[in-house]
């Protein structure tokens, strides 16, 4: 079972995660055998510099982006990474004084894990871009549902094309096979529903403008197709927001 949600995040963080696991095992052995850890001031300073850089770049992104999710979710990730880095600094100071210090080893492991987790949180905030596109299509769909003419359909069509492309790229990025299949299946349903929706809108608009019989039925049919499509897009959004850690809750 993959630990990280996307291949990009996995490629960045999985090697570090493995090393931390290794360190945890050694730490457990160390508690028994009392092995020493030398001065880690220099590598900790390198982590500190990298953290400062990430926080700086991240804060610039938060200031310039219009993505509200990013604005909301990035700052807690910065705090997590910065607090974890402080633990590493403390660990290095403690180890300098006592290379056998058990609390220092705990700080070292907690700090490394926190850096990993905070960086993962930060990278996950980017995953919301696809959700925004889906929400935009939902908005267009809602607008079209209220309209009594066909012209707003063209903006929906271009939004759908963008969404389809993003979902295609996204499913290739996911590490969970089930999530990939769910995205593919829902996107295929949306694609199949599109011509049905065009037809339903056309029939409704034509019937209504000619004051012909069957307006109510055409409207019902159109509403049914809208609802079906909307439900499928909601399902896509739900799957896009699933992460590894949600899986138990979702199951």
């Amino acid at each position: 079972m993959p630990v990280f949600h996307t291949k990009t995040i996995e490629s960045i963080l999985e090697p570090v995660a493995q090393q931390i696991s290794h360190l945890v095992i050694m730490h457990e052995e160390g508690e028994v055998d009392g092995k020493a850890i030398p001065d880690l001031t220099v590598p900790v300073a390198a982590v500190q510099a990298a953290v400062s850089n990430l926080v700086r770049v991240g804060k610039e992104t938060v200031q310039t982006t219009e993505d509200q999710v990013m604005k909301r979710d990035m700052p807690p990730a910065f705090i997590k990474v910065e607090n974890s880095c402080s633990k590493l600094v403390q660990a290095a100071q403690m180890l300098k004084a006592d290379p056998y210090s058990v609390p220092a080893r705990d700080y070292l492991i907690d700090g490394s894990r926190g850096i990993l987790s905070g960086t993962s949180d930060l990278l996950l905030t980017f995953d919301e871009a696809e959700v925004q596109t889906c929400l935009c299509v939902q908005g267009q769909l809602h607008f079209l549902e209220q309209a009594n003419e066909f012209s707003p359909f063209f903006s929906l069509s271009s939004g759908m094309t963008k969404m389809s492309k993003m979902i295609e790229e996204r499913q290739q990025e996911l590490t969970h096979q089930e999530h990939r299949q769910m995205l593919i299946s829902s996107m295929n349903t949306v694609k199949e529903l599109l011509p049905v929706l065009i037809s339903a809108i056309k029939i409704f608009v034509t019937t209504k403008s000619s004051h012909g019989a069957g307006v109510e039925e055409a409207e019902r049919n159109r509403r049914f197709t809208f609802e079906k499509m909307s439900a499928e897009i909601n399902e896509i959004i739900r799957v896009l927001q699933l992460t590894t850690w949600d899986e138990d809750a979702w199951a």
Binding site: T8, I12, L13, P15, V16, Q19, I20, H22, L23, M26, E29, G30, D33, K35, A36, I37, P38, L40, P43, V44, A46, V47, A49, A50, V51, N53, L54, V57, G58, E60, T61, V81, L88, L108, S112, I115, L116, T119, L122, L123, F126
Partner: peptide, 29 residues
């Protein structure tokens, strides 16, 4: 892109740190 690069740097620095701690311990076994 900048954030991805910064995240890669953090991963590399953390990796180097953990390696130093682990390797030092291994030497002393």
């Amino acid at each position: 892109e900048q954030i991805l690069e910064a995240a890669k740097s953090i991963a590399a620095a953390t990796s180097a740190l953990v390696k130093s701690a682990s390797a030092a311990q291994r030497e002393l076994v």
